[in-house]
């Protein structure tokens, strides 16, 4: 299981490419950190890998996940999870239903699905939170739910766009530990955009620094 970027460039509407052609590889269970100055295109890179770019952007090069090229696949077929800066839990669904939304379709049967969701809640130390309104959760709790939601979909890779930036220092440390624990369990390539050197140190994975062209 690996995620490979081969000579990847992203260009906004008829302008200069955002960064020089990237060739980079993340293996299973590795957490690669992406760093760079603001505005260099870190979020755009993640969106390109996830397939979320709109038509104003064009891509050259290849994105290969588990020996399968992703560039022609739409976002909903890539099986690449994403976490943004805000947890973005769907406000009209309960915490449990949010997780159920993420839960892979391969788990069949109401009882089985409920079981998986409850297990995920336990892993996030939120047992018994199934019927809670996401708005009543703290920032850290919401982030944990958002991560579990992404992982329940059994993604083949995970992209995190500064997911802990809005949390305070202590919470960031807790969330980092939580992420590392989940990463060890799921063994998929993970890409983490961050400004924190502490994240890089904890991840102990490859480091990608983007420079503007």
């Amino acid at each position: 299981m690996s995620l490979q970027l081969i000579n990847l460039t992203v260009t906004a509407q008829q302008q200069v490419p955002l960064f020089a052609p990237l060739t980079f590889s993340v293996g299973a269970g590795e957490i690669a950190c992406v760093m760079g100055p603001s505005g260099v295109g870190k979020s755009t890179l993640l969106n390109a890998i996830g397939g979320h770019l709109n038509r104003h952007f064009s891509i050259k090069g290849d994105i290969v996940l588990n020996h399968q090229s992703m560039t022609l696949l739409p976002a909903d077929e890539r099986q690449i999870g994403v976490l943004f800066q805000d947890p973005l839990l769907f406000p009209h669904l309960t915490v449990g239903d949010n997780l159920a939304f993420g839960l892979s379709h391969s788990v069949v049967g109401a009882k089985q699905r409920r079981l998986h969701v409850e297990q995920a809640l336990e892993q996030a130390q939120l047992a018994g939170f199934y019927h809670r309104d996401p708005a009543t959760l703290s920032g850290g709790q919401q982030s944990r739910v958002a991560l579990m939601r992404a992982l329940l979909a059994k993604p083949k890779a995970l992209l995190l766009d500064e997911p802990f930036a809005k949390l305070d220092l202590e919470l960031r440390h807790t969330m980092r530990e939580f992420l590392l624990a989940q990463a060890k369990q799921y063994l998929i390539p993970i890409l983490l955009v961050t400004h924190e050197p502490a994240d890089v140190a904890a991840a102990k994975g490859p480091l990608l620094v983007l420079h503007p062209t």
Binding site: H52, N54, D76, I80, G81, V82, F84, L88, F101, S104
Partner: peptide, 12 residues
């Protein structure tokens, strides 16, 4: 657009 991106990433 962000909620659509998340839904896409979850396979919807």
């Amino acid at each position: 657009s962000k909620q659509l991106s998340i839904s896409h990433s979850l396979g919807y």
